[in-house]
Design a binder for these strands. Structure first.
Lengths: 170, 170
DNA sequence: CTTGAATAAGACTATTTTGTCCAATATCTT
DNA sequence: AAGATATTGGACAAAATAGTCTTATTCAAG
Protein backbone atom coordinates (compact mmCIF):
# COMPACT_ATOMS: atom_id res chain seq x y z
CA UNK A 1 0.00 0.00 0.00
CA UNK A 2 2.71 2.43 0.93
CA UNK A 3 6.00 2.27 -0.89
CA UNK A 4 9.27 1.49 0.77
CA UNK A 5 10.37 4.98 -0.04
CA UNK A 6 7.55 6.42 2.03
CA UNK A 7 8.40 4.14 4.93
CA UNK A 8 12.02 5.18 4.79
CA UNK A 9 11.27 8.87 4.47
CA UNK A 10 9.02 8.79 7.52
CA UNK A 11 11.61 6.91 9.51
CA UNK A 12 14.25 9.42 8.56
CA UNK A 13 12.13 12.36 9.55
CA UNK A 14 11.23 10.84 12.88
CA UNK A 15 14.84 10.04 13.49
CA UNK A 16 15.88 13.58 12.68
CA UNK A 17 13.20 15.01 14.91
CA UNK A 18 14.64 13.10 17.80
CA UNK A 19 17.88 14.96 17.54
CA UNK A 20 16.61 18.25 16.23
CA UNK A 21 17.78 20.90 15.87
CA UNK A 22 21.06 19.10 15.41
CA UNK A 23 21.92 17.74 11.99
CA UNK A 24 22.22 14.03 11.34
CA UNK A 25 24.51 12.45 8.84
CA UNK A 26 23.24 9.93 6.35
CA UNK A 27 25.29 7.16 7.88
CA UNK A 28 23.73 7.58 11.30
CA UNK A 29 20.24 7.97 9.97
CA UNK A 30 20.54 4.86 7.87
CA UNK A 31 21.89 2.90 10.77
CA UNK A 32 19.30 4.15 13.19
CA UNK A 33 16.42 3.48 10.88
CA UNK A 34 17.73 0.22 9.46
CA UNK A 35 17.70 1.41 5.89
CA UNK A 36 20.49 0.68 3.40
CA UNK A 37 22.79 3.67 3.46
CA UNK A 38 22.99 4.41 -0.25
CA UNK A 39 19.26 4.30 -0.56
CA UNK A 40 18.73 6.49 2.43
CA UNK A 41 20.96 9.04 0.76
CA UNK A 42 18.61 9.11 -2.18
CA UNK A 43 15.50 9.41 -0.04
CA UNK A 44 17.12 12.22 1.89
CA UNK A 45 17.83 14.03 -1.34
CA UNK A 46 14.15 13.95 -2.13
CA UNK A 47 13.28 15.43 1.23
CA UNK A 48 15.85 18.15 0.81
CA UNK A 49 14.51 18.99 -2.62
CA UNK A 50 11.07 19.32 -1.09
CA UNK A 51 12.47 21.73 1.50
CA UNK A 52 11.47 19.45 4.34
CA UNK A 53 15.10 18.98 5.24
CA UNK A 54 17.98 21.31 4.85
CA UNK A 55 21.43 19.96 4.09
CA UNK A 56 24.85 21.08 5.01
CA UNK A 57 27.94 19.67 3.42
CA UNK A 58 31.30 19.24 4.98
CA UNK A 59 32.54 18.49 8.42
CA UNK A 60 29.85 18.79 11.04
CA UNK A 61 27.24 18.86 8.32
CA UNK A 62 24.36 16.57 7.57
CA UNK A 63 20.68 17.09 7.13
CA UNK A 64 18.38 18.94 9.50
CA UNK A 65 14.65 19.35 9.84
CA UNK A 66 13.70 22.50 8.03
CA UNK A 67 10.20 22.67 9.50
CA UNK A 68 9.28 22.49 13.14
CA UNK A 69 7.77 19.13 14.09
CA UNK A 70 4.61 20.93 15.17
CA UNK A 71 4.07 22.17 11.65
CA UNK A 72 5.27 19.22 9.65
CA UNK A 73 2.56 16.73 8.75
CA UNK A 74 3.17 13.16 7.75
CA UNK A 75 1.36 13.91 4.52
CA UNK A 76 3.95 16.51 3.59
CA UNK A 77 6.64 13.90 3.97
CA UNK A 78 4.71 11.34 1.98
CA UNK A 79 3.93 13.76 -0.80
CA UNK A 80 7.54 14.80 -0.99
CA UNK A 81 8.78 11.37 -1.95
CA UNK A 82 5.77 9.53 -3.33
CA UNK A 83 2.69 11.69 -3.64
CA UNK A 84 -0.78 10.40 -2.88
CA UNK A 85 -2.47 10.32 -6.25
CA UNK A 86 -6.10 11.21 -5.76
CA UNK A 87 -8.54 10.20 -8.46
CA UNK A 88 -9.85 13.40 -9.95
CA UNK A 89 -11.03 12.23 -13.31
CA UNK A 90 -12.37 8.95 -14.58
CA UNK A 91 -9.41 6.58 -14.94
CA UNK A 92 -11.11 4.98 -17.89
CA UNK A 93 -11.57 8.43 -19.32
CA UNK A 94 -15.10 7.85 -20.27
CA UNK A 95 -16.00 11.18 -21.76
CA UNK A 96 -19.32 11.24 -20.01
CA UNK A 97 -18.00 10.80 -16.53
CA UNK A 98 -15.57 13.64 -16.44
CA UNK A 99 -15.32 15.04 -12.96
CA UNK A 100 -18.23 12.93 -11.86
CA UNK A 101 -16.67 9.69 -10.72
CA UNK A 102 -18.69 6.51 -10.95
CA UNK A 103 -19.53 4.80 -7.67
CA UNK A 104 -16.57 2.47 -7.96
CA UNK A 105 -13.95 5.14 -8.42
CA UNK A 106 -15.75 7.39 -6.02
CA UNK A 107 -15.13 4.84 -3.30
CA UNK A 108 -11.55 4.31 -4.31
CA UNK A 109 -10.96 8.02 -4.12
CA UNK A 110 -12.80 8.30 -0.85
CA UNK A 111 -10.35 5.85 0.61
CA UNK A 112 -7.49 7.95 -0.66
CA UNK A 113 -9.13 11.03 0.77
CA UNK A 114 -9.41 9.38 4.15
CA UNK A 115 -5.77 8.48 4.13
CA UNK A 116 -4.81 11.93 2.99
CA UNK A 117 -6.91 13.45 5.72
CA UNK A 118 -5.48 11.17 8.39
CA UNK A 119 -1.88 11.95 7.55
CA UNK A 120 -2.55 15.55 6.71
CA UNK A 121 -3.81 16.18 10.18
CA UNK A 122 -1.05 14.37 11.98
CA UNK A 123 2.06 16.32 12.80
CA UNK A 124 5.43 14.89 13.42
CA UNK A 125 5.29 16.38 16.90
CA UNK A 126 2.20 14.33 17.68
CA UNK A 127 3.91 11.15 16.63
CA UNK A 128 6.87 11.96 18.77
CA UNK A 129 4.93 12.87 21.87
CA UNK A 130 2.58 9.91 21.82
CA UNK A 131 3.62 7.55 24.56
CA UNK A 132 2.01 4.24 23.81
CA UNK A 133 4.70 1.91 24.99
CA UNK A 134 7.19 2.19 22.19
CA UNK A 135 9.08 5.28 21.27
CA UNK A 136 9.02 5.88 17.53
CA UNK A 137 11.81 3.86 15.95
CA UNK A 138 13.69 3.55 19.16
CA UNK A 139 14.44 0.30 20.91
CA UNK A 140 13.45 0.84 24.51
CA UNK A 141 11.13 3.60 25.57
CA UNK A 142 10.96 3.35 29.34
CA UNK A 143 14.65 2.67 29.85
CA UNK A 144 17.59 4.93 30.18
CA UNK A 145 19.50 4.81 26.94
CA UNK A 146 17.19 6.08 24.26
CA UNK A 147 19.31 7.23 21.37
CA UNK A 148 22.93 6.96 22.32
CA UNK A 149 23.35 3.30 21.61
CA UNK A 150 21.94 3.40 18.15
CA UNK A 151 23.44 6.73 17.42
CA UNK A 152 26.70 6.96 19.32
CA UNK A 153 27.73 10.42 20.42
CA UNK A 154 30.34 12.12 18.32
CA UNK A 155 32.31 13.74 21.01
CA UNK A 156 34.68 15.44 18.68
CA UNK A 157 32.01 17.92 17.76
CA UNK A 158 32.48 20.68 20.25
CA UNK A 159 30.57 23.74 19.33
CA UNK A 160 29.54 26.08 16.58
CA UNK A 161 27.71 23.69 14.26
CA UNK A 162 24.30 24.14 15.72
CA UNK A 163 23.98 27.79 15.02
CA UNK A 164 24.87 27.92 11.40
CA UNK A 165 23.38 30.90 9.59
CA UNK A 166 19.76 29.80 9.16
CA UNK A 167 20.44 29.98 5.43
CA UNK A 168 17.24 31.72 4.46
CA UNK A 169 16.80 31.33 0.74
CA UNK A 170 18.69 34.45 -0.23
CA UNK B 1 -1.67 3.59 -3.63
CA UNK B 2 -3.67 0.86 -5.25
CA UNK B 3 -2.03 -1.25 -7.90
CA UNK B 4 -3.23 -1.43 -11.44
CA UNK B 5 -4.13 -5.02 -10.83
CA UNK B 6 -6.57 -4.02 -8.12
CA UNK B 7 -8.13 -1.42 -10.38
CA UNK B 8 -8.56 -3.95 -13.14
CA UNK B 9 -9.94 -6.65 -10.89
CA UNK B 10 -12.55 -4.31 -9.50
CA UNK B 11 -13.55 -3.18 -12.95
CA UNK B 12 -13.90 -6.75 -14.09
CA UNK B 13 -16.05 -7.72 -11.17
CA UNK B 14 -18.33 -4.74 -11.62
CA UNK B 15 -18.60 -5.51 -15.29
CA UNK B 16 -19.48 -9.11 -14.60
CA UNK B 17 -22.06 -8.09 -12.06
CA UNK B 18 -23.81 -6.08 -14.68
CA UNK B 19 -24.50 -9.12 -16.75
CA UNK B 20 -24.80 -11.71 -14.02
CA UNK B 21 -25.70 -14.45 -13.89
CA UNK B 22 -24.53 -14.72 -17.48
CA UNK B 23 -20.88 -15.42 -18.13
CA UNK B 24 -18.64 -12.88 -19.80
CA UNK B 25 -15.74 -13.67 -22.03
CA UNK B 26 -12.34 -12.14 -21.47
CA UNK B 27 -12.49 -10.26 -24.73
CA UNK B 28 -15.70 -8.47 -23.82
CA UNK B 29 -14.61 -7.74 -20.30
CA UNK B 30 -11.32 -6.30 -21.46
CA UNK B 31 -13.06 -4.15 -24.01
CA UNK B 32 -15.74 -2.98 -21.64
CA UNK B 33 -13.30 -2.10 -18.92
CA UNK B 34 -10.59 -0.68 -21.16
CA UNK B 35 -7.95 -3.08 -19.96
CA UNK B 36 -5.43 -4.78 -22.26
CA UNK B 37 -6.89 -8.16 -23.10
CA UNK B 38 -3.91 -10.36 -22.25
CA UNK B 39 -3.52 -8.71 -18.92
CA UNK B 40 -7.17 -8.97 -18.12
CA UNK B 41 -6.87 -12.67 -18.74
CA UNK B 42 -4.25 -12.87 -16.05
CA UNK B 43 -6.25 -10.83 -13.57
CA UNK B 44 -9.27 -13.00 -14.23
CA UNK B 45 -7.26 -16.09 -13.49
CA UNK B 46 -6.41 -14.69 -10.12
CA UNK B 47 -10.06 -14.08 -9.34
CA UNK B 48 -10.96 -17.57 -10.42
CA UNK B 49 -8.26 -19.03 -8.25
CA UNK B 50 -9.70 -17.10 -5.32
CA UNK B 51 -13.12 -18.58 -6.06
CA UNK B 52 -14.62 -15.17 -6.65
CA UNK B 53 -15.28 -16.07 -10.24
CA UNK B 54 -16.03 -19.40 -11.78
CA UNK B 55 -14.80 -20.19 -15.27
CA UNK B 56 -16.21 -22.31 -18.01
CA UNK B 57 -14.20 -23.28 -21.02
CA UNK B 58 -15.47 -23.87 -24.47
CA UNK B 59 -18.21 -22.44 -26.56
CA UNK B 60 -20.64 -20.35 -24.55
CA UNK B 61 -18.21 -20.26 -21.70
CA UNK B 62 -16.51 -17.42 -19.96
CA UNK B 63 -16.23 -16.33 -16.37
CA UNK B 64 -19.13 -15.79 -14.01
CA UNK B 65 -19.53 -14.27 -10.59
CA UNK B 66 -19.32 -17.06 -8.08
CA UNK B 67 -20.64 -15.02 -5.18
CA UNK B 68 -23.78 -12.94 -5.11
CA UNK B 69 -23.06 -9.24 -5.34
CA UNK B 70 -24.79 -8.75 -1.99
CA UNK B 71 -22.20 -10.93 -0.34
CA UNK B 72 -19.10 -9.98 -2.23
CA UNK B 73 -17.12 -7.15 -0.69
CA UNK B 74 -14.63 -5.02 -2.52
CA UNK B 75 -12.06 -6.12 0.02
CA UNK B 76 -12.45 -9.72 -1.03
CA UNK B 77 -11.66 -8.73 -4.58
CA UNK B 78 -8.70 -6.64 -3.55
CA UNK B 79 -7.30 -9.34 -1.33
CA UNK B 80 -7.67 -11.87 -4.08
CA UNK B 81 -5.28 -10.11 -6.40
CA UNK B 82 -3.16 -7.86 -4.23
CA UNK B 83 -3.79 -8.30 -0.53
CA UNK B 84 -3.80 -5.40 1.87
CA UNK B 85 -0.73 -5.94 3.96
CA UNK B 86 -1.51 -4.82 7.47
CA UNK B 87 1.44 -4.03 9.71
CA UNK B 88 1.32 -6.57 12.49
CA UNK B 89 4.89 -6.51 13.68
CA UNK B 90 7.53 -3.85 13.76
CA UNK B 91 8.86 -3.48 10.21
CA UNK B 92 12.26 -2.68 11.62
CA UNK B 93 11.97 -5.79 13.71
CA UNK B 94 13.16 -4.13 16.80
CA UNK B 95 12.99 -6.97 19.24
CA UNK B 96 11.48 -4.81 21.92
CA UNK B 97 8.54 -3.60 19.91
CA UNK B 98 7.12 -6.92 18.90
CA UNK B 99 3.37 -6.68 18.61
CA UNK B 100 3.42 -3.24 20.12
CA UNK B 101 3.85 -0.90 17.18
CA UNK B 102 5.53 2.42 17.71
CA UNK B 103 3.40 5.50 17.15
CA UNK B 104 4.65 5.89 13.60
CA UNK B 105 3.80 2.41 12.46
CA UNK B 106 0.66 2.44 14.54
CA UNK B 107 -0.61 5.30 12.41
CA UNK B 108 0.46 3.68 9.21
CA UNK B 109 -1.40 0.57 10.17
CA UNK B 110 -4.41 2.53 11.30
CA UNK B 111 -4.65 3.97 7.84
CA UNK B 112 -4.53 0.49 6.39
CA UNK B 113 -7.17 -0.62 8.85
CA UNK B 114 -9.42 2.20 7.80
CA UNK B 115 -9.09 1.26 4.18
CA UNK B 116 -9.66 -2.37 4.97
CA UNK B 117 -12.74 -1.48 6.95
CA UNK B 118 -14.11 0.76 4.23
CA UNK B 119 -13.79 -1.84 1.51
CA UNK B 120 -14.65 -4.72 3.75
CA UNK B 121 -18.02 -3.21 4.48
CA UNK B 122 -18.85 -2.29 0.93
CA UNK B 123 -20.52 -4.93 -1.17
CA UNK B 124 -20.52 -5.08 -4.90
CA UNK B 125 -24.28 -4.74 -4.81
CA UNK B 126 -23.98 -1.41 -3.06
CA UNK B 127 -21.65 -0.10 -5.70
CA UNK B 128 -24.00 -1.20 -8.41
CA UNK B 129 -27.11 0.24 -6.88
CA UNK B 130 -25.67 3.60 -6.02
CA UNK B 131 -27.07 6.13 -8.44
CA UNK B 132 -24.88 9.15 -8.25
CA UNK B 133 -24.94 10.26 -11.83
CA UNK B 134 -22.61 7.76 -13.40
CA UNK B 135 -23.24 4.09 -13.60
CA UNK B 136 -20.17 2.10 -12.59
CA UNK B 137 -17.92 1.77 -15.63
CA UNK B 138 -20.70 2.45 -18.04
CA UNK B 139 -20.82 5.42 -20.36
CA UNK B 140 -24.28 6.85 -19.97
CA UNK B 141 -26.53 5.99 -17.09
CA UNK B 142 -29.81 7.68 -17.95
CA UNK B 143 -29.83 6.70 -21.63
CA UNK B 144 -31.02 3.66 -23.43
CA UNK B 145 -28.05 1.68 -24.58
CA UNK B 146 -26.23 0.61 -21.49
CA UNK B 147 -24.18 -2.42 -22.33
CA UNK B 148 -25.00 -3.49 -25.82
CA UNK B 149 -22.80 -1.01 -27.59
CA UNK B 150 -19.73 -1.83 -25.64
CA UNK B 151 -20.61 -5.45 -25.43
CA UNK B 152 -22.45 -6.44 -28.61
CA UNK B 153 -24.99 -9.21 -28.27
CA UNK B 154 -23.97 -12.60 -29.53
CA UNK B 155 -27.18 -13.68 -31.07
CA UNK B 156 -25.93 -17.08 -32.00
CA UNK B 157 -26.28 -18.11 -28.40
CA UNK B 158 -29.74 -19.51 -28.21
CA UNK B 159 -30.34 -21.40 -25.06
CA UNK B 160 -28.88 -23.88 -22.66
CA UNK B 161 -25.68 -22.08 -21.69
CA UNK B 162 -27.02 -20.34 -18.66
CA UNK B 163 -27.94 -23.45 -16.79
CA UNK B 164 -24.79 -25.41 -17.24
CA UNK B 165 -24.14 -28.05 -14.60
CA UNK B 166 -22.78 -25.97 -11.73
CA UNK B 167 -19.50 -27.77 -12.38
CA UNK B 168 -18.81 -28.83 -8.84
CA UNK B 169 -15.17 -29.77 -8.49
CA UNK B 170 -15.57 -33.45 -9.30
C1' DC C 1 -15.06 -37.32 -34.01
C1' DT C 2 -13.80 -33.21 -35.71
C1' DT C 3 -13.85 -28.30 -35.38
C1' DG C 4 -14.23 -23.83 -33.48
C1' DA C 5 -14.63 -21.08 -29.30
C1' DA C 6 -13.12 -20.25 -25.12
C1' DT C 7 -10.05 -20.45 -20.72
C1' DA C 8 -5.34 -22.08 -18.55
C1' DA C 9 -0.73 -21.77 -18.16
C1' DG C 10 3.73 -20.50 -18.93
C1' DA C 11 7.50 -18.01 -21.13
C1' DC C 12 8.84 -13.70 -22.39
C1' DT C 13 9.46 -8.37 -22.63
C1' DA C 14 9.15 -3.72 -20.75
C1' DT C 15 8.73 -0.43 -17.16
C1' DT C 16 9.02 1.06 -12.51
C1' DT C 17 10.75 0.65 -8.07
C1' DT C 18 14.36 -0.46 -5.10
C1' DG C 19 18.95 -0.77 -4.02
C1' DT C 20 24.26 -0.09 -4.95
C1' DC C 21 28.38 2.19 -6.23
C1' DC C 22 31.52 5.78 -7.34
C1' DA C 23 33.22 10.18 -8.69
C1' DA C 24 32.51 15.14 -8.08
C1' DT C 25 31.69 18.97 -5.23
C1' DA C 26 31.18 21.68 -1.13
C1' DT C 27 32.68 23.00 3.52
C1' DC C 28 34.87 22.88 7.86
C1' DT C 29 39.25 22.34 10.49
C1' DT C 30 43.99 22.64 10.91
C1' DA D 1 46.33 25.59 1.13
C1' DA D 2 45.56 20.76 2.42
C1' DG D 3 42.96 17.20 4.19
C1' DA D 4 38.96 15.17 6.17
C1' DT D 5 33.98 14.86 6.11
C1' DA D 6 29.48 15.11 3.85
C1' DT D 7 26.15 15.78 0.35
C1' DT D 8 25.12 15.55 -4.80
C1' DG D 9 24.41 13.27 -8.87
C1' DG D 10 24.69 9.91 -12.26
C1' DA D 11 25.46 5.31 -13.79
C1' DC D 12 24.42 0.83 -12.85
C1' DA D 13 22.16 -3.70 -10.97
C1' DA D 14 18.36 -6.31 -9.10
C1' DA D 15 13.62 -7.19 -8.17
C1' DA D 16 8.78 -6.42 -8.59
C1' DT D 17 5.06 -5.09 -11.39
C1' DA D 18 2.74 -4.55 -15.71
C1' DG D 19 1.87 -6.12 -20.07
C1' DT D 20 2.35 -9.47 -24.28
C1' DC D 21 2.42 -13.68 -26.77
C1' DT D 22 2.07 -18.50 -27.76
C1' DT D 23 0.74 -23.02 -26.90
C1' DA D 24 -2.01 -26.22 -24.48
C1' DT D 25 -6.75 -27.85 -22.80
C1' DT D 26 -11.48 -28.03 -22.53
C1' DC D 27 -16.07 -28.02 -24.08
C1' DA D 28 -20.22 -27.68 -27.21
C1' DA D 29 -22.13 -28.30 -31.49
C1' DG D 30 -22.39 -30.08 -36.03
Amino acid sequence: MFSQTVEYALRAVVFLAHKAPNPGICEDIALGTKVPRPYMAKVLQGLVKAKILRSQRGLGGGVTLNIEPEHLTLLQVINAVDPVKRITTCPMDLASHGMNLCPLHRRLDNALATVEQAFGSTTLAEVLSEQNGSIPLCEFPPRRMPLQQINPPVLSRKKSWHNLPKSGKS
